Simulated scan of single mutants.
Amino acid sequence: MYEKKGSAIALLPLVIFMVLFLGVSIIMKDFYKMPVVVALIIASTIAILQNKKILVELKVERFCRGGGESSIIILLIK
């Protein structure tokens, strides 16, 4: 039976997060210039919009329900 393999494009949100957070931080020479939450929101938006087969509303609901605790932790760290 044929198994569908993953695509490298699935790593795009991670790459965007790393480029935004690390890139801006290195260019500005200060890791506090680029808030991690901003980079996370941008990368999360890209991740939600990647799959066209599932409705955006359903993806946002799943993301908020499943990642609510980790999002709160990230906000409290700062």
Rank of each mutant, 00 (worst) to 15 (best):
M28A: 15
V60C: 09
V56E: 10
L22G: 10
G66A: 14
I77G: 12
P35K: 10
S70K: 02
F17L: 13
K29G: 01
S70F: 15
F63G: 02
F63E: 10
I74W: 14
K33V: 09
E61V: 01
L40E: 08
K53A: 07
L58E: 14
A43T: 02
G6V: 05
F63D: 03
G68I: 03
Y2S: 15
V38G: 01
C64V: 15
V37P: 05
I16M: 02
Q50N: 08
V60D: 08
F31R: 07
I54G: 03
A10L: 09
S7H: 11
I41A: 12
F17A: 14
I72D: 07
L12N: 02
G6T: 08
K52D: 15
G67F: 08
S25W: 05
L14N: 06
S71F: 14
L22N: 13
I46S: 01
V60W: 03
V37N: 04
A10R: 12
I73P: 05
I16E: 04
T45A: 07
L55I: 02
D30H: 10
V60T: 07
V60G: 11
A47M: 03
V37M: 14
V38D: 01
F21G: 00
M18L: 13
F31A: 03
I46F: 03
E61F: 03
S70H: 06
A8E: 12
G6R: 09
I54Y: 07
G68P: 01
I27A: 10
G68W: 06
S25V: 00
K78P: 00
K59A: 01
A47V: 00
Q50V: 01
I72A: 13
K33N: 07
M18C: 10
M34A: 10
S70P: 03
E69W: 10
I41L: 13
A8C: 04
F17Y: 14
L11R: 02
K78F: 06
P35M: 02
F63V: 05
M1W: 10
V36I: 15
V38M: 09
M34R: 12
K5G: 11
G67P: 06
L22C: 06
F31Y: 14
E57I: 07
R65N: 09
I41M: 12
Y32T: 15
G67E: 12
F17H: 08
A43R: 05
A8W: 11
S70L: 07
F63K: 11
M18T: 13
F21A: 09
I72G: 12
K52H: 12
A43K: 01
L58R: 14
Y32F: 02
